[in-house]
Design a protein around this nucleic acid. Structure first.
Lengths: 225, 225
DNA sequence: GCATTTGTTTGCGTATACATTAAAGAATGC
DNA sequence: GCATTCTTTAATGTATACGCAAACAAATGC
């Protein structure tokens, strides 16, 4: 098996990507248990790479390995979402501030601008999936511009868990019009080097998002997904 | 092999603890490479549990597995320390704020008070090791009181890396008298429910600590440890 | 009937064997 | 003498085998 660059891809890496994909897509449902040997057979490889991949996914908080009970796909509760959003709020706001301080030019911010444009288009089209993808890109790029690799890694892990909750809630909630305005404000602040404002605007953006998501989860009694 | 509770401890767990200990103590020096088979022999077990432990330590950022180059103990640079302290600053300050909002009583804050007392004693005795241990405890307990499990986990990971830098710098720097005053102020703020102040005091404390550490590292040209 | 014990099964933890492949060294040609 | 290719080697990636311990079932004693 080779990847796009022609480099061979180890089975462990394949297992990692496949399992992650299966969890995020819901193919492996939250709360379900799966034997290592089952997963190995599904993926067409032996238990060893599956175990190694599972170990990594365990430290990303997507699953849990319980002796004799199989690999458990961890559900996400509203309380988990509070924790996650609190972390995202703090770390992304800092990233926004740092990005503004870095004095990036328009070229550096092109990707950010692009994802904002994509979100605008998606809202027009009422295409929630496209909006979610562009939103992911915006946050990922924002954090990248913040220049802290560890924050990037942490946010990536937390975002994986948010993605699962969002897969369920995406079609329940109203079109994220407010969100798009927030993004533009953050972009403007970064672009013109207003660090404090970038921080605060993004902070408010995330607090707002947290409130909306938690509200939906509690209203619909989605205690575990 | 059994642990304190009499429960058998898996070799993977033993490898995890041992390797972590060896890295933090410097027994496995930063920047050095080690074959899986060497480590396995050292620990008296086969490669399998060593690999599994290494995988976990890799996601904690303590080492890196590079095909054919062996397991590399990751060095920590001043830039790494900036990243780590930025994260600790944000997440611990939030924890302090939340702890203050939670309205804990004196009994709940006993451990926090104890570690402060231990730090005072350690400063009197000029026992830097004891101070460092108590300081770890203070921060760990503070974060626990914050009530966000994920922040606890992230801070634990980051703290492991700080510990390595501190092992080197602990005896270079002046006695942390200012630090102890900060801790007391944070404690007071939490104890009396002044959330905003707890946040801000802890924030300043961490920013200060960051400055001191980075200053030492750069002054002594400690670019990698 | 119920509880306790014994047997059986099943899945994991670990060792080990093997295939794979990148890196280092040797040999060859220019 | 240098570069290139071939060979070798060594370390990893993966499969597989097996013992053990936990969960479940059955059987036995009360």
């Amino acid at each position: 098996m080779k990847d796009k660059d022609g480099k061979p891809l180890s089975n462990t890496q394949r297992a990692l990507r496949e399992l992650r994909r299966m969890i995020l897509s819901g193919e492996l449902a939250a709360g379900t248990d799966h034997l290592e040997s089952e997963l190995a057979e599904t993926l067409g490889m032996s238990r060893t790479p599956v175990r190694e991949a599972a170990l990594m996914l365990e430290s990303r908080g997507l699953l849990e390995m319980r002796p004799r009970k199989g690999v458990r796909i961890l559900p996400v509760s509203p309380e988990d979402m509070r924790e996650i959003y609190d972390i995202l709020t703090e770390l992304e706001s800092l990233a926004a501030q740092r990005a503004a301080e870095a004095g990036y030019g328009d070229a550096d911010l092109a990707q950010l601008a692009l994802s904002i444009a994509q979100m605008d288009q998606a809202v027009k089209d009422e295409d929630r999936e496209a909006w979610a993808d562009a939103d992911d890109l915006f946050h990922q790029e924002l954090v990248r511009l913040g220049g802290n690799k560890r924050i990037e890694a942490i946010v990536a892990v937390m975002s994986d868990q948010v993605r699962r909750a969002r897969a369920t809630t995406l079609f329940i909630r109203p079109l994220p019009v407010q969100s798009n305005e927030d993004h533009r404000a953050v972009y403007q602040a970064i672009s013109s080097g207003r660090a404090e404002e970038a921080h605060e605007r993004h902070r408010q953006h995330r607090l707002q998002a947290k409130g909306v998501l938690i509200g939906i989860l509690e209203k619909h009694r989605l205690n575990s997904l």
